[in-house]
Design a protein around this nucleic acid. Structure first.
Length: 416
RNA sequence: CGGGGUGUAGUGUAUCGGCAACAUGCACGGUUCGGGACCGUGAGACAGAGGGUCCAAUUCCCUCCACCCCGACCA
């Protein structure tokens, strides 16, 4: 991608009303634009990061045997009335009325998925069924805040599973719990599985995935050894108490919730009458679970965790591009020569952001590269004499490499 | 929703009763070219909206709106 063609360039300053680090850096780097409070556009660079995150989640979801689908965002009132959530979730739902007909904008998809299932599932032979999608959620939060960490419209991956028994549901629930930890690990984040309240979703205890951060809205009490963590909203014990397994005293910390999983039992399927025929011919209610990851929020969390005074420092697996190519426009270098490296990289299948701007100073290009935060910076100039200068975002040392070596290294890091 | 704060060119800031200024960004020309370079020229704001006070309002007062922060609540 030629940087000169991108909509949304870097800026020296963020709008003064953006206070959070994630919003400031994402705005300044040209990753996002704000339409209104809690409602952001992902510009091309932001979208690339989102797609990287999405792909990692997709791979792990598929690994559990789940199938990817896409459910609608506009829902009829009737489906929500079946479970009583038209009224119960009134505060968070956006509702609209057109003529006599009432609708809701999707804030979650339990009802929709179960409706889908009951139209198709007849027998135990079909179960379990696991479906997920990446889609927009609309939630009328009392207060949108912290940049893209809490929006009123955001992307979420939600997975739903339907089972013949409590045992099978529990088994899958535990599997997803492990897979979630793997996903966050692949993203470079350390998530703590935390017991929490189910809100408008369920009266049962649920599990949240919390990433420690001072800008988090949640407070958790956890054991550094990893065998205990509860959201302070439900936690009965105090920090400082000794862990049962002798990992020392419990700690209290701020954290950002990046995922949440729910085991509903047969609560929903009873309300919606979702049944299957068991192997003795009897009708049984299905066992139901739901599992969410806040995709948009993860972009913000990554920025909160991975940045320095110069800008964002993307982990390579989620960086919008693998490398950021800068050419220094000396008269001695013809345009063709400069484009040559770019063309070779593209041809080799490397994802490259090419700062081909001709009227921008070197200093600015370097500063922009640091702000955008792509892990590898490549420079071609008169000084590099036919070679390419390689520099990692996180350190200051540079080395001169041949183009083949550059491609080789980039392909290797991509594969890793 | 309660409390607090902020609204002036795209962005960041001045002006704080008397014809709205600077920086940056943008456009054009020229000089530069390894850490946000320089010179010149130019375009760009009915000062968030509405009302009031005053000879005169960006400035003082009222109402509304938007955004940010804290809280409540929630993923």
């Amino acid at each position: 991608m030629r940087y000169s063609k991108l909509l949304g360039k870097t800026r020296k300053e963020a709008p003064k009303d953006e206070v959070s680090v994630n919003a400031k850096l994402l705005f300044r780097g040209g990753f996002i634009d704000k339409l209104m409070a809690g409602s952001y556009t992902l510009l091309h660079l932001g979208r690339r990061v989102e797609q990287k995150i999405e792909q990692i989640i997709r791979e792990e979801m598929n690994e559990t045997g789940a199938e990817e689908i896409l459910m609608p965002l506009l829902h009829p009132k009737e489906i929500w009335s079946e479970t009583g959530r038209w009224d119960k979730a009134d505060k968070v739902m956006y509702k609209l009325k057109k003529g006599e007909k009432e609708y809701a904008l999707s804030f979650t998809h339990e009802e929709i998925f179960l409706d889908l299932v009951r139209k198709h599932i007849l027998t135990y032979r079909d179960l379990p069924v696991k479906g997920y999608h990446f889609s927009t959620k609309f939630r009328d939060e009392l207060r949108a805040k912290s940049g893209i960490l809490r929006g009123r419209e955001f992307l979420m991956k939600d997975l739903y599973s339907v089972h013949t028994s409590s045992k099978d549901l529990d088994k899958y629930y535990e599997e997803v719990k492990k897979v979630y930890l793997k996903i966050f690990d692949r993203l470079g984040l350390k998530a703590i599985v935390t017991e929490a309240d189910g809100g408008v979703f369920t009266d049962r205890v649920t599990h949240e995935f919390q990433v420690l951060s001072d800008v988090g809205e949640d407070e958790i009490i956890y054991c550094p050894g990893g065998d205990f963590s509860q959201n302070s909203e439900i936690c009965k014990v105090k920090e400082g108490k000794q862990c049962d397994l002798g990992h020392g005293p419990l700690k209290k910390a701020r954290a950002i919730e990046v995922g949440n999983i729910f085991s509903y039992g047969t609560d929903y399927s009873e309300k919606m009458n979702v049944v299957y025929t068991d192997n003795s011919g009897k009708k049984q209610h299905v066992w139901f679970g739901a599992y969410g990851i806040g995709v948009t929020r993860l972009i913000g969390v990554l920025v909160e965790v991975f940045h320095d005074e110069k800008g964002i420092v993307w982990p390579s697996q989620v960086a919008p591009y693998n490398c950021h190519l800068i050419t220094i426009n000396k008269q001695q270098l013809t345009k063709n020569k400069m484009d040559d490296v770019y063309n070779k990289l593209v041809k080799a299948g490397v994802e490259v952001l090419y700062d081909d701007r001709e009227d921008v100073s070197v200093g600015q290009k370097f500063a922009d590269a640091d702000l955008i935060g792509i892990p590898v910076r490549l420079v071609v100039s008169e000084k590099t004499a036919g070679k390419v200068e390689w520099k990692n975002r996180i350190d200051s040392k540079t080395e001169l490499l041949g183009i083949e070596e550059v491609v080789k290294r980039l392909k290797r890091s991509e594969a890793a």
